[in-house]
Amino acid sequence: MNIITAPLQYEFFTHGLLAGILVGGMCALIGVYIVLRRMSYIGHGLSHAVFGGAVVSYVMKWNFYLGAGLWGFLSVLLINAIARRKKVGADAAIGVITTASFAVGVAIISRYRRFTKSFDAALFGNILGVTTNDLWIIGIVSVVTALLIFIFYRQFLFTTFDADVARIYGVPVAWTEALFSFILASIVIVSMQVMGVTMIAAAIVVPAITARLLTDNFNKMIFLSVIIGILCGTIGMYLSFYFDLASGATIVLTAATLFAISYLIYLVRSRSVHLKAEEMPAPVESLPTHSHHHDHDGFKHVHEHRHPQAEDRQEKSAQHRHHTDTPS
């Protein structure tokens, strides 16, 4: 018990822990949408893009959140605009915009070498750097993110499932996408201090993928992903404290471990369902059938005929066969 309570006497740790929990949960929540949109790479790219904005803000003496936030938001809008051009594609658009933006940051740092050390935290995450002010901002972004996802649940779900059709059914897709970009950019920016630029993508993607392996239900996936994200944030922070490691790395390593465990559970479940399916009656295609002849307007036909009970069995068997691919 002392292992858990001992670090809490340090203010920097309680700040870091709270930040880790909030960042872990937030990244995991938005991660569900990112993973289902098959845009896992955007978290990685965006964090690199924001790094450029952070460096520019520092040099220009702008407020970090304002400068990096605006930079990040514009980067996502630009990625979305370029990605719509089918000749380019989302992956290439992310690659071009974010690496160019990251390169701006690297170029400025290499020009003014005295900044190098202070950006280590931005790259790899550092719980020591979480101030009360940072915590407030992370808290506000967490609450606003959760509220927006809740309020616009239908828009986000439909747009993520099929944006083209959602538009036909009256969903303001462009507006929803812009709102999503804003939320994503905000999360990446406030997560930088805890996670570090290089680790944010994993905090977004891994809990969501882990949850996806455990359920076929969207609402449950959101719930599980957030729980996993919070768990990773908490465990990761303690590991960071006790082993004096970068917090971003410990959070991601915890997430990767949970993913590995989920994947094993998934494999075992798939195998057991597969074995059950093999014990089921043979599919209807292989069941004996009989043919009968009949006549339509002078056209004589032969129909193969099967019994309804056989079709019931086929359905059950099909479901079992499916479960070997997708867990429920």
Partner: peptide
């Protein structure tokens, strides 16, 4: 063929999408 069949939605959730225009936009 254009539907993402791996997307974790239920039949009920898909059909509810068709009510978007008429719904009160409640999350549930």
């Amino acid at each position: 063929e254009t539907v993402d069949w791996d997307f974790p939605v239920t039949v009920e959730q898909v059909v509810a999408m068709g009510l978007y225009r008429k719904s009160k936009r409640l999350p549930w």
